[in-house]
Design a protein around this nucleic acid. Sequence first.
DNA 1: CTCGCTCTTGTACATCTGTACAAGATTCGT
DNA 2: ACGAATCTTGTACAGATGTACAAGAGCGAG
Lengths: 201, 201
Amino acid sequence: MTPDRRPSEPRPADTVAAGRPQRPRDPQARRRALATAVLEVVAEVGIGRTTHRAVAARAGLPLGATTYYFPTLDDLIAAGLRHATELLDAELRSWSDRLATAPDPTAALVQLVAAYLADRQRATIEYELYLAAARDLTLRPLAETWLHGLRGLLEAYVDGADAPAVVALLDGAMLQALVTGTDLDTAGLRTAVRRLTRRPG
Amino acid sequence: MTPDRRPSEPRPADTVAAGRPQRPRDPQARRRALATAVLEVVAEVGIGRTTHRAVAARAGLPLGATTYYFPTLDDLIAAGLRHATELLDAELRSWSDRLATAPDPTAALVQLVAAYLADRQRATIEYELYLAAARDLTLRPLAETWLHGLRGLLEAYVDGADAPAVVALLDGAMLQALVTGTDLDTAGLRTAVRRLTRRPG
DNA sequence: CTCGCTCTTGTACATCTGTACAAGATTCGT
DNA sequence: ACGAATCTTGTACAGATGTACAAGAGCGAG
């Protein structure tokens, strides 16, 4: 991963490449393209098998572009992570808007969860990154964005003390759906959420 | 991963190594040592970065031992997976015994979950494999062992229709504890489980 | 224009990886 | 005893990988 390298005196011009065609400059677009490509590669092969070359190929860019913008592989993956966090943030904001205008927030919430799972690939990436946070502290921000964001979202609708359990329930239900490849049991989930949020007599 | 290899005529004796000391033979022990080493390596670096050499080093065996018993890397990792499945099976059986004699099954269940999480490393591995099942069908058996095992376990104590929700809740709670590195909120989990299992009036 | 900066691309290379395999060591049936 | 099967270990090698870097292209300031 980070092999030792003995200091070598500057190599002589190894190769003289002839006049090269170049695509127009657009650093911002390249950064974005690389970040989203990271997520796609992670979705396919997992974080551990994500490589510079796979990302470059996926983004349709030469290998050198990856190391130019993200000097190290960790930087590259971190860029993907940052992008995922932004996507998640946006997702949570849209959930917030949706819930605010729903007549039955519980039903709407379960509906949102089901819709989220419809994009299997994206959900898989985010859960993979989420779980990887158990090992890699760099990934904690994503986990916290999700957990705290969802928890904060719920606190507008249910007793604050109940929110953690509801989040756990939803998280577990999503995890199971992903892992088994089955669809979410929306009806069951709705009644479970209602039970968790009904104030005890 | 599986590079093409042109058929090469048998290489001449590349090297002549002198008389080598050998450890006593014990194939079964080696298979076991390799399988558990796989799990340890997976816990540290994830499935994707698990290599023959890392496993061999962790098991204290020479590289050749890995390929002798498990010809391919997939075989090696599958062996770890099989081992994990057995561990999980045993764990579930022990839970079953424990619950059978508990005066308050709900409290006992939450206690078992907390105890399970005490071994962070092991829990992390199993959840990583669990989630990896979302991408890799080979890993489904582990996921199903856990899901169905736990669900079946619960059905002795709660209404069958409530079991899935309780499993989801517990799964989500464990995932969150792993991901955030915090301890389980056992009190909150107990009341949540009770709410999910209390028959509606 | 020309200098100097940023961006683009191709390529080099040390190291790691999966896997093959030869040469010994041990065990066991005969 | 002895030969075959099994196990152990070291080593080889082709390909993949992270990263460095040189050569060139585009572009703005003076």
